[in-house]
Nucleic acid binder design. Structure first.
Length: 157
DNA sequence: GCCAACGTTGGC
DNA sequence: GCCAACGTTGGC
């Protein structure tokens, strides 16, 4: 029995936000379209039952909007093989896929988005890439200390 | 819409 | 292996 892992994943709520998960609470969502190697490698480390903060970026209320859970571990992202898809990758083959997806399911929507300003004020996150200037990583591992520090603020106004 | 920061590509 | 050019991310 290993300890549960914690993560944060970014998305634009217009594409796939916490409400998309909340609207289908019993149906997993395929998290595909990740096209960054570091993010992909982190996705490969995800295990069933891991918890994930869902972060809304490039929108009005930037920050962590809720929690989702891993229900299916990394598998080849089908969109990389589909020439019609915006996520098509001509260098991917069925034998040697480049990109992976995971499946996630709804856990919790916070009463209010935990704003980026608040996240920056949480000392436990000082070394986390999320709050570093210019950071573009869309899948970020969290320690349990970081997770708890953020989680403890979820009901603050 | 702007633009700094970043990751990737490709010529050499 | 270097690095300039390019495309993208993401806060503001």
């Amino acid at each position: 029995m290993t300890a549960k892992n914690y993560w944060l994943m970014k998305s634009e709520p217009d594409e796939c936000g916490i409400d998309d998960f909340a609207h289908t609470p019993t149906q997993p969502i395929h998290w595909d379209g990740v096209r960054n190697y570091q993010a992909r490698n982190f996705m490969r480390d995800m295990r069933i039952g891991d918890r994930v903060f869902l972060y809304h970026s490039s929108c009005k209320f930037i920050g962590i909007a809720g929690i989702v859970e891993v229900v299916k571990e990394a598998y080849p992202d089908p969109k990389q093989f589909n020439p019609e898809s915006a996520y098509f990758d001509p260098k991917s083959t069925l034998e040697k896929p480049r990109w992976d997806a995971v499946d996630l399911i709804f856990v919790e929507k916070f009463p209010k988005v935990i704003s980026l300003d608040r996240l920056k004020s949480i000392k436990a996150l000082n070394e986390n890439p999320l709050v570093k200037k210019g950071n573009r990583l869309s899948v970020i591992p969290f320690t349990s200390v970081e997770w708890e520090a953020v989680h403890a603020t979820r009901n603050l106004s």
